[in-house]
């Protein structure tokens, strides 16, 4: 019989855990924005540089938790020496850039982009877009009553959310959230071309037939209300949706151990919508089907 049973061994003595070498601090890049000298870390975008000195640059397709696709072109700024305007959301800073964010050229492009959208899309549930349109003096009415629009019937094909593509500005955010930026489900993509381009499942099959897992992250990133909780859609149709009467309460999702923060939107004692803060370190604003939609049981004890 051995003195030392085979199942009893001291753990090996702790050794130094190798550490990654310290990263050098990013170099600062100096540029001029609207006459003011700005220094930002190398690799920053013009949008970040603008925001660092308090310039409010409008954005529609850009969202902090997604890869910039620079398709809405509402954030364009003028850079001295370049033939065209550049999208602030994705253009990285270069030393010595001279940037104008409020020149006549910039204001013209922003106004026209907002006019184009407001004249072709139903913007009734897009508060940001309407605010920008007002700021830049957009007059969507001047394209006349016969101007082509993307009007089409709302798609209601499941219990959880609706898709109203008459309100879609084709910002690609939902496609990104459904794809590699968050969910990796790839249930939707942009289909068709030009003015007929639409967000679609394969062969436009209803959502229940598609790869959709109902995480609702597309709703979370939609800037115009084209994607909406079915609860919100129905309350709006009934005229009972009232954000002034809604309380927002942060809590932790009860389902699993990840610990996502949920923001409950509560109206008249009922949860009407659930979101998560964009800057939350666990979720970055994204949830799963349970946290997003699985709250029907709340307040139902004893029923």
């Amino acid at each position: 019989m051995s003195a030392e049973p085979i199942w009893f061994r001291l753990p090996p003595p702790p050794t130094e855990v190798p550490r990654a070498p310290e990263r050098p601090a990013p170099r600062a890049v100096e540029l001029t924005i609207d006459g003011a000298s700005v220094a930002v870390p190398e690799g920053a975008t013009l949008l970040e540089a603008c925001r660092s000195i308090g310039i409010d640059t409008p954005t529609l397709c850009y969202l902090e938790n997604l890869t910039p696709v620079n398709v809405c072109r509402v954030c364009v700024v003028e850079v001295e020496g370049l033939r065209t305007l550049v999208p602030a959301c994705s253009r990285t800073v270069e030393p010595g850039m001279v940037v104008q964010t409020d020149s006549e050229r910039v204001r013209h492009s922003r106004r026209m982009v907002l006019e184009f959208l407001a004249s072709s899309v139903d913007v009734s549930t897009a508060p940001d877009l309407r605010r920008y349109a007002e700021r830049y003096g957009a007059e969507p009415g001047r394209y006349g009553p016969t101007a082509a629009t993307v009007a089409q019937p709302v798609k209601v094909d499941n219990e959880l959310y609706v898709r109203d593509y008459a309100k879609c500005i084709l910002c690609y955010r939902c496609v990104e959230a459904c794809g590699t930026d968050a969910q990796n489900t790839f249930a939707i993509a942009v289909a068709g071309r030009g003015f007929e381009a639409r967000i679609s499942t394969e062969f436009a099959v209803p959502l229940p037939d598609s790869a959709c897992v109902y995480c609702g992250n597309c709703i979370g990133v939609c800037p115009t209300g084209a994607l909406m909780f079915r609860s919100e859609h129905e309350m709006r149709a009934a005229g009972t949706w009232d954000e002034a009467r809604q309380a927002r309460t942060d809590t932790i999702c009860p389902y699993c151990g990840v610990g996502c923060t949920l923001t409950l939107h509560v109206q008249d004692g009922e949860i009407v919508k659930v979101t998560s803060p964009l800057d939350h370190e666990v979720t970055a604003g994204h949830l799963c089907i349970k946290g997003r939609f699985g709250w029907a049981f709340v307040g139902k004890r004893g029923e």
Binding site: N70, V71, C72, R73, V74, S109, M112, V113, F116, L117, S119, S120, Y143, G144, T146, A147, A148, I169, L170, V190, G192, R193, G194, F195, E196, A197
Partner: peptide
């Protein structure tokens, strides 16, 4: 141009349509 715009950016996707409409008027 309306037919061949890829539809990615707003100035071209909607601009080519508005241009065609204004030209017709």
């Amino acid at each position: 141009f309306r037919d061949e715009s890829c539809g990615q950016c707003v100035p071209c996707r909607v601009g080519t349509v508005r241009q065609e409409e204004a030209l017709a008027r």
